[in-house]
């Protein structure tokens, strides 16, 4: 595991470069949208954060299923290393969405299907972290957390398809569908998505290193 610190440092430096390019592009090279003006810049934070929150939980669901089937402790550790990262992205998604909603929709929040299911996703992340901490080193902890993640992952298709299944204030997806979003906005969006992904890998590797060291110490004691 001696390669771990070197690897997360590389990802961290890569993240800093991407953040620099993204911020420069968003603030100095992005034209105002014909309807939204410069508030369109919020999209570069909101949309990648929403994607990260969604896909991290999806990955957590797959890892939890893997744990339930194989009972390999490493899968549980990987899930716990990931989940707090998703929690932060879910919070960023909700807060930036609210800050975008106020000038565009005239309201900070509505209980429509997309916003409510995203809020439930945030609560699921929070519940997972609380569950993990509450059960401490109890041997049942991993199975309980994995079962909870798998069950609450039912919310993911609702988050994804809520804008198609119900009438919502939130616009339908399709950012990368040709003609829906201008290329002037797609490039910074892709840069911030890469930044969030690279930053997530950095934090994941840091947390994984910490959790593995902790696990080794516990093994030595017992």
């Amino acid at each position: 595991m001696s390669w771990l610190p070197r690897l997360w440092k590389v990802f961290f430096l890569f993240s800093l470069v991407l953040l620099g390019i993204g911020l420069w592009w968003a603030f100095f090279n992005t034209p105002p949208d014909y309807q939204q003006g410069y508030s369109v810049r919020i999209m570069f934070m909101h949309v990648p954060a929403a994607w990260m929150a969604f896909w991290i939980y999806f990955l957590g669901g797959i890892l939890s299923l893997g744990f339930i089937l194989t009972r390999r402790g490493i899968l549980s550790i990987i899930t716990f290393a990931l989940m707090p990262i998703g929690l932060v992205f879910a919070a960023i998604c909700i807060v930036t969405g609210s800050l975008w909603g106020k000038p565009m929709w005239g309201t900070w929040w509505v209980w429509d299907a997309r916003l409510t299911s995203t809020f439930i996703l945030f609560l699921s992340y929070l519940a997972y972290v609380i569950l993990w901490r509450a059960w401490g080193s109890n041997p049942k902890r991993d199975l309980i957390c994995a079962s909870f993640t798998l069950l609450s992952a039912i919310n993911l298709p609702i988050v994804k398809f809520s804008v198609e299944w119900w009438y919502t204030l939130h616009q339908p997806s399709g950012l990368f569908t040709q003609g829906k979003v201008d290329d002037a906005f797609r490039f910074p969006l892709a840069i911030f998505l890469l930044f969030f992904a690279s930053f997530s890998i950095t934090i994941f590797l840091m947390r994984f290193q910490h959790l593995m060291e902790k696990e080794k110490k516990t093994m030595r004691r017992t």
Binding site: Y38, R41, H46, I92, V95, H210
Partner: peptide, 30 residues
């Protein structure tokens, strides 16, 4: 409020949250 305020608040919240996550993970590692 002008759009700039909403934009700055969004970027400020997002980047501060990520910075806190980084610091928290760093402290745990030390």
């Amino acid at each position: 409020m002008s759009y700039t305020v909403y934009v700055l608040l969004s970027y400020g919240f997002a980047l501060c949250s990520l910075a806190l996550l980084l610091v928290y993970s760093w402290i745990k590692l030390k």
